[in-house]
Write a protein that binds this DNA or RNA. Structure first.
Length: 803
RNA sequence: GCCCGGGUGGUGGAAUGGCAGACACGGUGGACUCAAAAUCCACUGCUCGAAAGGGCGUGCGGGUUCGAAUCCCGCCCCGGGCACCA
C-alpha cells in the first residue's frame, strides 16, 4: 500500500538518531529522579529470538514510559558471556571461545537495536571482559577472607556431558542436568563453596518485602525449605539395651511422637555404620552400602515399590530416650547425609514412609496421636491428643512438641533446631570458558589467594581444546606453573573456573559505575541507582540466579561494599511468560527458533513489538504463531494515514464531535496510564485500536491525534517519532512529558443502565451518570412495567427487579 | 503425593460480583477496480424462528447471592514448581 509509511527507512532513521544523539545515555549526576530498569542480561547465543524480542520490548517500553514520566532512567545492557555453548563450539572448531563469543555479542546487540530497544551502550558489561573479571575474582577473595567461601571434599553432582560439577540448583528433579539433560553422577571432589546457607533465614524473611510474583516467592521459599524441630542424641546398644558407647544424633520435626519410635534409620554413608554393624549382619550391610554408593541419584530415588530392597538391618540397637526401650537400627537409601544429621528416628504411626518401612520389615507400629474417629488411613500426620505417650498424653501437637523439646533440653540430650533444605553453593566448574578462581596451591602453604595486584587472572590464548571436553587449563604448563605469593616457591594455579552465576550475581551493580578502574563500583553510585526499580526476565531464573544475586547483595552489604541498608537487589520483579512453538520450549538446541528478522524486514519492528504485546498478557506463555501480525501492521498504517500531515484519509471532526473526540482522548490517557502501571499491555493496544477506530468514524482533532502518538510512543517508538516530527517541526515525542488526563474531560454525559428482571437483562437505558436511585427505579419500571417484590438499584449501572 | 497457575466463540484473548465474548485474527457479504491487491463498510457464540423475538452458553457437579466466568465446597483435565527433607 502506498500511503508513504516507509517502515524500513523510518525505523532505521530513528534507531540511528537515538544512537547518535545518545538520547538514552544517562549520567550519574542527572538531575531527574533516578529509575533503574533492567532486563536480565542475555547469554550471547547469536541473533535474537522471539523470547528476546518480548523481553526487550517490555524493558524498552518501560524505559521510554518512565523517561516521559520525568525520570532519569538507567537502562543498561550487558552480556552473560562466559558459558558452555561457546566452549563447546571451541571444542568442535578448535578456535578460542573469545572471538566466537565476541561475534555472537555483535549479532545479538545488532538485533536488539533493530527492534528499537534503547540503552546506554557506554555502560555495556561483559562477563568475560578482564575489567569485569578482575572484580568477580576480587569478590571471591573478599568472600574468602570473610569466611563466606570455603573448600571441602564432598560427593558432588557430576555431569558427564558437561564434564563438570553442578550446583544442587542445576540438577533437575529427575536427576538430569538442567543444561545438557545428561544423567548426573556422583563424584568425590575437593571443591569451592559459597556459604549461602549462612543467609538462609534472611533470604527467607526478606521475601516478605519484595514486590515479586507470588509464585517466584513460593518457589524460593520451598527451595530454602525451613523446618523447625529438635535434634537429640541416641545411645547405641545391644538388643538387651546395654550401651555400646556409640552415639548418634537424629533430627525430627515431631519430637512429640518420640514414644512411637520403634526403629531408627541411618544413611548408608553414615560414619557409624562400620562400627556398629554386628558381625552376623556385616556381609549384608556391606553389600547394601556398596550397592547404594554405586547407584546414581535417579536410581536411588526411583527404586519405588520394592521397599524391602531399600533397607537393611545392622544388628545394632539404639535406646529410645523417651521410654528407654531398645529399637533396631536400620540403614535405608532414602535417608540422606546431606539433610539433618543423616539419621532419623522412625515413627510409623505418624509418618507414612516409616509406616511402609515398618510394614515391609515387620516392625511394630505404635500410634502416639489419636486419629479422628472416621480415620481410614494408615500413618496419621494430623493434629490430635497424644496417646501412649506417658507425660505427653492428652496434649495436642503444638503443646506436645514444646513440652517434648523442653524435656530433651532438661535431660541435656537435645535441643530445638531449625533446619534448611538449602545447601551451600558449589561454585567450582571444571571448565575453561569461565572466570578463573584466583587461588594458588603451594606445597607448603596450601591454598593461597592471588594477591589483588595480580588480578585479573585471565586464561591464556594458546590453548588446545580436547575432544573429551576436559578443560585446557589443566594441561597448560604456562598457566599452571607459578610461584607461591607467600614463600615464592614453585606452586600451581587452580584450574577450575567459577560458575557463571557468580558473574550474574553482581553485574547489575557494575552497571551503576561501569568505568570505575579502582573499584567494582563506588558506594555512592550504587546508592543512587540500587535497588533495581524494575527487573524483567524469564521465570526459569526464579531459583538459581535470583537466589544467588540476593545472597551476593546481602553479603556485600554486610562487607560494607554497598550501602548497609541495601538488603535486596531487585525491588520489583516481573517474570514474563515463555514463547513456545507447537507447545514445546523454543530453544536453539531444539532448532525451532523463529527469527524476528523476517518480521522486522517486512512489517517492521513497531508492528512486531505491538503484536507480541497484543498477543497475550505479559506473564502468560505464548504458543507462537504469526496469525494476527498483519493486524498490528494494518493498525499502524491506519495510524499513519490518520496522523501524517499530508494525508486526507480521515476527516477533521466538526461540531459536537470535536468535544466528544477530545473527551475520548482524555479517557484514553487515563485508561492507558492505568494499564501501563498494571502491565496490562495487551488491553492497552486494544485501547489504541478502539480509539483509532473512533477517529475514523467521528473524525479527528489535532489534540486527539497528538495524544494517541504520545501514548503509543513507548510501544511503537519509530512510527510515533516520525509522525510527531512531521507534525511538530522536528520535535521529539519521546522527550515530551507523559500526558495527564483532565478529570473534568473524562466525565461522560450518559451511561448505559441495565434493567434486569430476576437477574436477566430485559432493557438497556441511557441515563445520566449521577442518576438517583429513585429515578433509576422509576425509569426501570417504565421500561419494564411490573410489580416487583424487591428492587435492587445500583445506579447508574443497573436496576434488578425481583418478582 | 504436595504447592502454585490455568480451563471463556473457529483462533489469540477481554470482562476482579452487575450487558459474557472488548480488541484482533480468520470467515461471509458488499463498495471501489477492467481485474487483482490494498483500502473502506456490514455481519460473524450456539440454537429455535420467515421475522419480531425467545432459549441455551465461560471444564463438570453442588452452594452463597437479587445477580457468579468472577466468591465457597467437591471433582475432571492441562501447564509449571517441589518431590523419600525426617
Amino acid at each position: 500500500m502506498d500511503d508513504g509509511y516507509e517502515v524500513q527507512a523510518i525505523e532505521r532513521k530513528w534507531q540511528e538518531h537515538w544512537r547518535d544523539e545518545a538520547t538514552y545515555h544517562i549520567d550519574n549526576d542527572d538531575p531527574r529522579p533516578p529509575f533503574y530498569v533492567l532486563s536480565m542480561y542475555p547469554y550471547p547465543s547469536g541473533p535474537a529470538h522471539m523470547g528476546h524480542v518480548r523481553n526487550y520490548t517490555f524493558g524498552d517500553l518501560i524505559v521510554r514510559y518512565r523517561t516521559m514520566g520525568g525520570y532519569g532512567v538507567l537502562s543498561p545492557i550487558g552480556f552473560d558471556s562466559f558459558g558452555l555453548p561457546a566452549e563447546n563450539a571451541a571444542i568442535r572448531s578448535g578456535e578460542h571461545p573469545r572471538p566466537f563469543t565476541d561475534a555472537r555479542i555483535v549479532e545479538l546487540s545488532s538485533s536488539i537495536q533493530r527492534i528499537g530497544a534503547v540503552y546506554d551502550w557506554r555502560r555495556m558489561v561483559k562477563s568475560h571482559d578482564p575489567n569485569f573479571m578482575r572484580w568477580t575474582q576480587w569478590f571471591f577473595l573478599q568472600f574468602l577472607e570473610a569466611g563466606l567461601v570455603y573448600r571441602k571434599m564432598a560427593t558432588v553432582n557430576w555431569c558427564p556431558g558437561c564434564q563438570t560439577v553442578l550446583a544442587n540448583e542445576q540438577v533437575l528433579a529427575d536427576g538430569t542436568c538442567e543444561r545438557s539433560g545428561d544423567l548426573v553422577e556422583k563424584r568425590d571432589l575437593e571443591q569451592w563453596y559459597f556459604r549461602i546457607t549462612q543467609y538462609a533465614q534472611q533470604l527467607l524473611d526478606d521475601l516478605d518485602h519484595l514486590d515479586w510474583p507470588e509464585r517466584v516467592i513460593t518457589m524460593q521459599r520451598n527451595w530454602i525449605g525451613r523446618s523447625e524441630g529438635a535434634e537429640f542424641e541416641m545411645q547405641v546398644s545391644d538388643d538387651k539395651g546395654q550401651p555400646t558407647g556409640h552415639r548418634f544424633r537424629v533430627y525430627t520435626t515431631r519430637p512429640d511422637t518420640g514414644f512411637g519410635m520403634t526403629f531408627c534409620v541411618l544413611a548408608p554413608e553414615h560414619e557409624l555404620v562400620e562400627e556398629i554393624t554386628t558381625p552376623e549382619h556385616r556381609d549384608e550391610v556391606s553389600a547394601f552400602v556398596a550397592r547404594v554408593r554405586k547407584e546414581s541419584e535417579v536410581e536411588r530415588m526411583s527404586s519405588e515399590g520394592g521397599l524391602e530392597k531399600r533397607g537393611v538391618f545392622t544388628g545394632a540397637y539404639a535406646i529410645n530416650p523417651f521410654n528407654d526401650e531398645p529399637v533396631p537400627i536400620y540403614l535405608a537409601d532414602y535417608v540422606l547425609t546431606t539433610y539433618g544429621t543423616g539419621a532419623i528416628m522412625a515413627v510409623p504411626g505418624q509418618d507414612q514412609r516409616d509406616w511402609d518401612f515398618a510394614t515391609a520389615y515387620g516392625l511394630p507400629i505404635v500410634r502416639t496421636v489419636q486419629p479422628p474417629d472416621d480415620w481410614q488411613g494408615e500413618a496419621y500426620v494430623g493434629d490430635g491428643p497424644a496417646i501412649n505417650s506417658a507425660w505427653l498424653d492428652g496434649l495436642h501437637k503444638a503443646d506436645a512438641i514444646t513440652k517434648a523439646i523442653d524435656w530433651l533440653e532438661e535431660k541435656g540430650i537435645g535441643e530445638r533446631k531449625v533446619n534448611f533444605r538449602l545447601r551451600d553453593w558449589l561454585l567450582s566448574r571444571q571448565r575453561f570458558w569461565g572466570c578463573p578462581i584466583p587461588i594458588i596451591y603451594c606445597p607448603d602453604h596450601g591454598a593461597v589467594p592471588v594477591p589483588d595486584e595480580q588480578l585479573p587472572i585471565v586464561a591464556p590464548d594458546d590453548v588446545e581444546f580436547r575432544p573429551t571436553g576436559e578443560s585446557p587449563l589443566r594441561f597448560h604448563e604456562g598457566f599452571l606453573n607459578t610461584t607461591c605469593p607467600i614463600c615464592g616457591g614453585p606452586a600451581v594455579r587452580e584450574t577450575d573456573t567459577m560458575d557463571t552465576f557468580v558473574d550474574s550475581s553482581w553485574y547489575f551493580l557494575r552497571f551503576c559505575d561501569p568505568w570505575n578502574a579502582d573499584a567494582p563500583f563506588t558506594k555512592s553510585a550504587v546508592e543512587r541507582w540500587m535497588p533495581v526499580d524494575q527487573y524483567i526476565g524469564g521465570v526459569e531464573h526464579a531459583i538459581l540466579h535470583l537466589m544467588y544475586a540476593r545472597f551476593f547483595t546481602k553479603a556485600l552489604a554486610d562487607l560494607d561494599m554497598v550501602p548497609a541498608n541495601l538488603r535486596e537487589p531487585f525491588g520489583r520483579l516481573f517474570t514474563q511468560g515463555m514463547i513456545r512453538l507447537g507447545g514445546g520450549k523454543m530453544s536453539k538446541s531444539k532448532g525451532n527458533l523463529v527469527s524476528p528478522d523476517d518480521y522486522v524486514e517486512t512489517v517492521g519492528a513497531d508492528a512486531l513489538r505491538l503484536f507480541i504485546l497484543f498477543m497475550a498478557p505479559p506473564a502468560d506463555d505464548i504458543d507462537w504463531n504469526d496469525k494476527g501480525i498483519e493486524g498490528t501492521s494494518r493498525f499502524l498504517h491506519r495510524v499513519w494515514r490518520l496522523a501524517e500531515p499530508e494525508s486526507d484519509a480521515v476527516a477533521t471532526a466538526t461540531g459536537d464531535a470535536i468535544t466528544e473526540v477530545d473527551r475520548a482522548a482524555h479517557r484514553l490517557i487515563a485508561r492507558v496510564t492505568d494499564e501501563f502501571e498494571r502491565w496490562s499491555y495487551n488491553t492497552a493496544v486494544a485501547a489504541f485500536m478502539e480509539f483509532t477506530n473512533l477517529l475514523y468514524k467521528q473524525g479527528s482533532t489535532p489534540f486527539a491525534i497528538d495524544t494517541l502518538l504520545q501514548l503509543l510512543a513507548p510501544m511503537a517508538p519509530h512510527i510515533t517519532a516520525e509522525l510527531w516530527a512531521r507534525r511538530h517541526d522536528g520535535e521529539h515525542v519521546h522527550l515530551r512529558n507523559w500526558p495527564v488526563a483532565d478529570q473534568e474531560m473524562t466525565r461522560v454525559d450518559s451511561v448505559t443502565m441495565i434493567v434486569q428482571v430476576n437477574g436477566k437483562v430485559r432493557a438497556k437505558l441511557d441515563v445520566s451518570p449521577d442518576i438517583s436511585e429513585a429515578e433509576a427505579t422509576r425509569l426501570a419500571l417504565e421500561a419494564v412495567p411490573m410489580e416487583p417484590s424487591r428492587v435492587i438499584a445500583k445506579p447508574p449501572k443497573l436496576v434488578n427487579l425481583v418478582t
